[in-house]
């Protein structure tokens, strides 16, 4: 089970209203390589993993991703704070506002809703870990693209933290893959021919 803590993983700061970037960061909320997909992917892959280390890692990283999802929500809230009708229309967020008001929703930058078809869980530890390493890379480059599009230094500081987490997760998944590979390459015969 999970328990909620009333604390963000890392302080979210922005320089205030910025509807253009609000629309862009939504992809890390509900885009194909965003935090929702990451969390859902790892938390459902973990059930049939026969390796203790990998089961622990998928649970811990899947949980951390939920914390990142919350951070993206708070970023979105800060970037839309005080937006007027005209500003929403100018930023192309009027349709979004009609559907979701001030809340973040699980969509990408162009408004397409999240679909679990973008995540993979094949019930094989090695296959899934390759998927996870690819996912971390895709999330990392998405953060880098967001940072390049943003002129808000405070927002960038927060995005740089989140980007860094993708790098660390990639490393840990790589180590987990090595552990699984070692396990399957070990000779488990009880006698020598």
């Amino acid at each position: 089970m999970w328990e909620y803590k009333k604390i963000l993983q890392y302080p979210v700061q922005t320089c205030g209203k910025n509807l253009r970037m609000a629309k862009n960061v939504l992809t890390q909320y509900g885009g194909p390589d965003g935090e929702l997909g990451a969390s859902l992917r790892y938390l459902t892959q973990r059930y049939s993993v026969p390796h203790d280390e990998v089961r622990a890692l998928l649970t811990d990283i899947g949980t951390e991703e939920l914390g990142h999802l919350e951070m993206i929500a708070v970023i979105f809230g800060q970037l839309t704070e005080g937006a007027t009708k005209d500003e929403l229309i100018k930023a192309g967020l009027d349709g979004y506002n009609i559907e979701h008001g001030c809340n973040p929703f699980y969509v990408n930058t162009s408004g397409q809703t999240f679909d679990t078809y973008v995540i993979g869980s094949k019930g094989d530890a090695r296959v899934d870990l390759y998927e996870d390493m690819a996912a971390e890379q895709k999330a990392r480059i998405t953060y880098e693209n967001l940072i390049k599009m943003s002129d808000d230094e405070r927002l960038n500081k927060t995005l740089i933290f989140l980007r860094e987490r993708e790098v660390v997760h990639f490393q840990r998944f790589g180590e987990a893959l090595r552990l699984v590979d070692d396990y399957y390459s070990t000779d488990r015969y009880f006698y020598k021919k």
Partner: peptide
């Protein structure tokens, strides 16, 4: 409390306070 169920609460139930997000002012239009 930061973690509701394991903390002692005084007479006043203050769990609803101090959540780390507040979208109350998020969009003037709304």
């Amino acid at each position: 409390e930061m973690l509701c169920i394991y903390s002692d609460s005084d007479v006043v139930w203050n769990w609803p306070e101090n959540f780390p997000f507040d979208f109350g002012k998020c969009c003037a239009y709304c």
